[in-house]
Nucleic acid binder design. Structure first.
Lengths: 121, 121
DNA sequence: ACCTTTGTCAACCAAGTGGTTGACAACTGC
DNA sequence: GCAGTTGTCAACCACTTGGTTGACAAAGGT
């Protein structure tokens, strides 16, 4: 898997890894800690973490004999940029940009309004 | 791959498929048309389209002997919702929500320095 | 009717993925 | 030093993936 964007998408294509990422938003966790809820071996979790690390989504440092896992949320931007770019383009094409912008404001909390309307139809 | 969100992420983890999606934002394309730029067989492209279709990203209808491929941009929302939810949560946790909101509106703010103020545990 | 165009299905193959178990490395604490 | 805790590495296995080629189905053009 050559490019990082592909690695990020691939990393998040697994429900277990998405759940790990979700839990890491609460703060750093040790590997054992992360592994607890899943019914797989610690080694399997270690592999999942390697995938997340290769994608740039997490970093691991050392602290005593623990290896705390830390989420690097900046990488999300890679995806959102890609997604937003083409979503916007597609919706414009279909002449439904208004509906999209409205939905974007409804779905999220109201503080996230995107005041930028492009070439509306 | 059980859930749709996983299928969508997996579908976009391939550069060829991402490129197809990008081109489909310009409008519908026939399979041959879509296949033209890539140095793979038509069957391989057909497989890629099946992956995109199973993820709900495209639909295919019939029109003469052609099978025009149509992008369903709504599925992007599945991802953006997931991403935004946890990104937001992570950024809040790190006490950098202001910077994030600013970046979301500017879309290209070079202030990527994050001084890691003492919120870390 | 027949042939061409367009695309899918089936079988196959090499490489990758997600899981396992066993060995072992790194660090802590007695 | 030695035992325990924490985590990784290596080998292996079943399954999936992305590619191939060959056969064939569906619709149009003549």
């Amino acid at each position: 898997m050559t490019d990082q964007l592909s690695r990020v998408f691939a990393a998040l294509a697994d429900p277990t890894r998405r759940d790990m990422v979700a839990r890491l938003t609460e703060g750093d966790h040790s590997v054992n800690d992360l592994a607890a809820p899943y019914d797989v071996s610690l080694q399997a979790v270690s592999k999942h973490l390697k995938v997340l690390e290769d994608a740039g989504l997490v970093t691991r440092t050392r602290e005593a004999q623990r290896r705390p896992v830390h989420l690097e949320a900046e990488v999300f931007d890679l995806m959102t940029k890609w997604i937003e770019r083409y979503r916007r383009q597609a919706e414009e094409r279909f002449g439904r940009l208004d509906a999209v912008l409205a939905r974007m404001q409804d779905d999220d909390d109201p503080s996230s309004t995107h005041p930028q309307e492009g070439t509306a139809s």
